[in-house]
Amino acid sequence: MHELSIAMGIVDAALDESQRRGVQVSAVHLRLGALSGVVKDALMFSWEVACQDTQLQGSQLIVDEVPVIVFCTQCHAERELPSVQSFACPVCGAATMDIRQGKELEVFAIEVQEEEVQG
């Protein structure tokens, strides 16, 4: 279970962005690849703990799960894998290791709350 340290890494990245921009973060959007080695449920479970006593306390983690996309040299096309247990083209069955997507572990966006300009 390394999701807590991953969650803390996400918090650090989001805090850095919020401080740089001088904004308050209400939600963090994460792109999580099926091959990232990180389990969504465990990450969600760790989020509250990771945010504790930081400016992100009370914020939301929104996870966008990214499927694996491979390139099939037989079909000459990108294909989405239905399962990470089989690295074969779902259309023609050819084996492939040409991974185009699915390893993402990326803070994609933050939702920020800005104070309205007074006056």
Binding site: A14, V23, H29, E106, V107, F108, A109, E111, E114
Partner: peptide, 17 residues
């Protein structure tokens, strides 16, 4: 307070590693 705004940041969490 205004409505929340979505800001794209695109940061790899494991970049330091």
């Amino acid at each position: 307070m205004s409505e929340p705004r979505l800001v794209e940041v695109r940061r790899n969490v494991l970049k330091q590693n």
